[in-house]
Design a protein around this nucleic acid. Structure first.
Lengths: 225, 225
DNA sequence: CGACCGATGGGGGATATCCCCCACGGTGAA
DNA sequence: TTCACCGTGGGGGATATCCCCCATCGGTCG
C-alpha cells in the first residue's frame, strides 16, 4: 500500500519531532524528510519529491511563503500546506497567492492535521475554521469592492495609516486632529474606517497591529508623560 | 515504578500533542495534564500537583513567566521548565527570577527535552546550550556593572502585571473582571494603580509597554475577531 | 458622464475609560 | 504592634471611544 509522502519544514526541532511522531502513527502517512529552514525545504523537495509539504511560515534564511513559491516553481505538483501560529488575514492571503493548498493553525488538533494532509494530497484545499471564516468575510468585501484589494495589507489609505500611527502612539482624537489640522470628527471617521477595514475594534489591538506592521516601534515614548 | 509527572502548558494544541507523543515514549515520564494558557496552568498545577511543568512563555490570558511565579507561590515544590522559541537574554533573566529551573529552546531535540525534565525533577537546573552561553556572558557584565540591574520594571505587583496583560490583549475592564473572578471596580483600581506606577495613561502606551517588556507579543490575536 | 472612493465635517447616543473619593481584611516588615 | 502595601469593592463624574446617521467636494475610472 502506497503511503502519502510528507516533508516537514519548521525551524524548531521539537515541533518537527512532535509532528513526526504524530504522523508516524497514521498508516497512510510517511514523513520522508525534515527541513529546518526555507532554503533547505526547497532543496529537499527537489530531491525527495514529496507529495505534501507541511511548511511553517516563520523560518530563517527563507520564509515559508517564499519557499512555497520556489517549491511550486521547481515541482508544481507539490501540495504545500502552510502551518502557522497566526491567522492574520495578510498571511493567509499571501499564502494562497503563493500557491499553498491550505492553511493550518498550530491551535488545530493532530487529527485535523492528518486530515488536512490527505485532503490536499487529493487536490483539494483545507483551511482551519477560524482562517476560513476570515477568508469568507474578505471574499465578500472584495466582491463588493470589485477586486480592489491587489496590494497586501495596505488596503488602508495613506491618511488612515497616518491616523493609525498617532492612535498607536497614544494620542487622543482631538490631539490627532490638531496635529493633522483637521476636525475632531474627521479623525473619528478615519478611526472608524480603519477599524472596520482591519476588523480590529480596540486601541490595544490597533497598537499591536501597528507594531507588527512596523508602523511604530514598541519603545516609542511620545506625548503622554 | 513511579514515573515523573509532567504538565504541558502551551497555547498550540499541535505542539502539546507533539510533546505528549514524545514524552509518552519515555517509560519514566507521564503527562498528567495539558493547559492552553497560563491561568489554566496555575489552576491545573494546584489540582494535579505535577512534579514538572513544561511551560511556554508566550501564552494568552497569563504569560508563562507570570504563571511560573503564581505556580511557585501556590506549590513551591513544582519544577518549572520554560520552553520558548526565543533566547532573548531578558526572557532568560526573567525566567530565572521567576523561579524557573531551566530554559529550553524549541530548537532543542526531543531527547534533550526528556533529559531536561529528569534533571530539573532531581532539583538541578538545565539550560539549552546557546542560552547558557548568553547567561555566562551576562553574569560577567553584571559583575562589571556592580549589580545595578535589580529593579527594572518590577515595581508592578503580580496582579497588576496580570491585569496589564489582559488590557494589552484588548480586553474590556468587565471582561478582565469576569476572567479574574473579581469586581469590575477592582480591575479599574488595578488599572489606575499600574497606570500611576508606570506613568502611562492610555491603552496604547500600556500595550507598547507590555510588548516592550515581553509580557505579550505584538502578534497576539486573542478575543476580538 | 455617472459611479465610486477618499477626505472632509457634523449630530447624537450607548458605553468605557480615567481619575477622584471612600472603605476593610490580610500579610509582612519595622 | 503599628504601619505600609496589596487586593478587594463601591460612588460618582468628566471625558473619550465607538458606532450609527447624515452631508459635500474632488478625483478617478470604466
Amino acid at each position: 500500500m502506497k503511503r502519502i509522502t510528507v516533508l516537514l519544514a519548521d525551524d524548531h526541532m521539537l515541533v518537527r519531532e512532535g509532528l513526526r511522531k504524530i504522523l508516524e502513527l497514521e498508516r497512510d502517512l510517511e514523513v520522508v524528510g525534515e527541513a529546518e529552514d526555507g532554503r533547505q525545504a526547497v532543496a529537499m523537495v527537489k530531491k525527495l519529491r514529496p507529495e505534501v509539504v507541511l511548511m511553517d511560515i516563520a523560518m530563517p534564511m527563507l520564509n515559508g511563503l517564499e519557499a512555497t513559491r520556489q517549491v511550486l516553481k521547481a515541482v508544481p505538483s507539490t501540495r504545500v500546506l502552510i502551518l502557522s501560529a497566526y491567522s492574520d488575514e495578510a498571511y493567509v492571503k499571501d499564502a494562497i497567492e503563493s500557491g499553498a493548498r491550505g492553511y493550518l493553525l498550530k491551535q488545530t488538533s493532530s487529527r485535523d492535521v492528518c486530515q488536512a494532509i490527505r485532503i490536499v494530497q487529493q487536490g483539494n484545499t483545507f483551511f482551519s475554521p477560524s482562517v476560513a471564516k476570515g477568508l469568507a468575510a474578505r471574499d465578500q468585501s472584495s466582491m463588493e469592492r470589485g477586486e480592489a484589494c491587489k496590494q497586501r495589507s495596505n488596503h488602508l489609505s495613506s491618511r488612515e495609516r497616518e491616523v493609525l500611527q498617532l492612535i498607536a502612539e497614544g494620542q487622543l482624537n482631538k490631539q490627532v486632529a490638531a496635529e493633522l489640522g483637521v476636525s475632531f470628527k474627521t479623525v473619528d471617521k478615519h478611526r472608524q474606517n480603519l477599524m472596520a477595514k482591519l476588523n480590529i475594534h480596540d486601541v490595544a489591538g490597533l497598537t499591536r497591529y501597528a507594531i507588527a506592521e512596523g508602523i511604530i516601534k514598541s519603545s516609542v515614548r511620545v506625548t503622554t508623560a
